[in-house]
């Protein structure tokens, strides 16, 4: 059992436990904090797979910007355990059963798939995840989608301002 395997199992357990805690926390602020833990675990996975650019972007964009926005909105609304809407227990059971059966079907499908049965992935080497190679491809081959995302951001910004404006 090498250090990579130990790190993989540790980060996987951290991600799954934190994801479950996002569900089970009654307080929305605790859910946000557990979700940040999930994002850090997933960033650890990216570093393990030598995708350094995505690891940093994941931390900056998700844990830094998006989750702060969530936290800000939750604190703006002053949500806490008392204002949490309750769902009846049968609906919860039905949701859990349907998600569990989906998971069961997907796992059995992966177990049977011959396309991925003997494939492995290279953890450490390979520099496709570095900023240099990704940036070269992004600004030559994929420059049009990159510019389109800036238009998307502009429209999202205008949309957020229009929706959030007090009329």
């Amino acid at each position: 059992m090498s250090a990579t395997h130990i790190l993989f199992w540790f980060l996987s357990a951290l991600a799954v436990v934190s994801a479950l805690m996002v569900l089970f926390s009654k307080n929305p602020v605790h859910s946000v904090l557990w979700l940040i833990a999930v994002f850090f675990a997933i960033s650890g996975h990216y570093i393990l797979m030598n995708a350094q650019f995505l690891a940093i972007v994941n931390i900056i964009v998700y844990a830094g910007a998006i989750m702060v926005l969530f936290l800000f909105v939750i604190m703006l609304m002053n949500l806490n355990k008392e204002s949490e809407p309750r769902k009846n227990v049968w609906m919860k059971l039905a949701g859990a059963i349907s998600a569990g059966s989906l998971l069961m079907i997907l796992v059995s499908l992966v177990g049977q798939a011959t396309e991925v049965s003997h494939k492995t992935l290279i953890m450490k080497d390979g520099n496709i995840g570095l900023i240099k190679s990704l940036g070269k491809i992004l600004f030559t081959q994929y420059v049009v989608p990159f510019e389109l995302t800036s238009i998307l951001f502009l429209s999202a910004m205008v949309g957020a301002v229009v929706i959030g404006k007090k009329d």
């Binding site: 996002v22 809407p85 949701g95 998600a99 997907l106």
Partner: peptide, 18 residues
């Protein structure tokens, strides 16, 4: 897949929009 199904379970079982 486990994380994805946890997300689906969350969408189906919680009522808080956030």
């Amino acid at each position: 897949m486990v994380i994805f199904c946890i997300g689906i379970a969350g969408v189906l079982t919680r009522r808080n929009t956030i």
